[in-house]
Amino acid sequence: MKFERKDLLGLEELSRGEIEFILETAGSFVEISERPIKKVPVLRGLTVVNLFSEPSTRTRISFELAEKRLSADTVNITASSSSVVKGETLKDTAKNIEAMNIDMLVVRHNAPGAPHYLADVLHCPVINAGDGPHEHPTQALLDLLTVKQKRGTFEGLNVTIIGDILHSRVARSDIWGFTKLGAAVTVCGPPTLIPPDIESTGVTVSYDLEEVIPRSDILMLLRIQTERLKECFFPSIREYSDFFGLDSAKLERAKPDVLIMHPGPLNRGVEITPEVADGPRSVILDQVRYGLAVRMAVLYLLSGGELKSEDSD
C-alpha cells in the first residue's frame, strides 16, 4: 500500500485502508522521539510553511516539532504577522506562497474549505490543520492512534464524544475516523450544540451523559467555548458542567478500563474536573505524544515527489 494523495484535507474522503496505513506509518514514527538524537534526515532540504490564520498553540507546535524532527526547514506565518488579517485574499496568499517555491503547506483557517481552496491552486501538498468547524484530520488521526496503541482494535468499541459538536472540527473528523474503523460513535451534548442531521453520519445522539457513560469505552471531551454562552446555546457554565462536565462522581459508573480523551486545551472545572483530567484513566498526554508521530507520518507520506512513470520500487 502507498499513500496516493497529494493533500490531507479531511478524514471524510479517506478510505479505511488509507487511515490504517497512516496509523501504521505513525506507529513507526513513535520511537524516533525516544531516541537520543530525535531527528531523522528524511525531509532535509524541504521547506514547510505553517500558515495559521487563527490562534493555535498546541497544533502549531506539534507540527513544527514534527517538521523539525524530520529535518525540514520551517516557516511560521501566524494571524498576527501575516497579511491574512490585513485583508489580503486567500488567492493572493496562495500566489505568494507559491512564488516562494515551498514544498509543503500546513494550514489552519477559520473558513471551512479554505485548505481545499489552497490545495486546488497550489502544486505542493496541503495539510489541513483545522478549517473552521469542518475537519481537523491530524487531530482525529492522533486520537485513533492513541486508541489503537491502548486498545489494539476499534471493532466493538463505543466512543462517546461530549460537548459542542456543532462547532467542532475535531468531532467531525473523529466521527469519520472512528466509524470507518469499526467503532460505534455517540455524540452527547445539549440539543442546541448537536448539528442537524448528524445521525446521517452513522452516529447515535444522546442528551444524557449519565446514561451513555456506563457503555462507553472512550469518553472524548471537547472544549466548551465560553462565547457560546452569549449566543444562548446554554444558560450557564454551572448548568453545563452539571449536565455535561465529567467529574469523579459521573466516572464511578464508567467501565473500569474507560479511556478519557480531550483534544485540548482543557477548561479545567468546566467540561472536565482536574482529578479526572489527571487521573489514571486519562490518556490526554498520550494524545499529545502520538500527535507528534501522526504529524511526522503525514508529513513523510505527503512529501513524495510528482508521480513519475519510471518510478522504481
Partner: peptide, 15 residues
C-alpha cells in the same frame, strides 16, 4: 442551507 450538508461541511446553515 441548514441540514445534513451544512453539518458535513462545517458551514453555518440557514434553516
Amino acid at each position: 442551507n441548514e441540514g445534513r450538508m451544512s453539518t458535513l461541511l462545517g458551514l453555518k446553515g440557514m434553516p
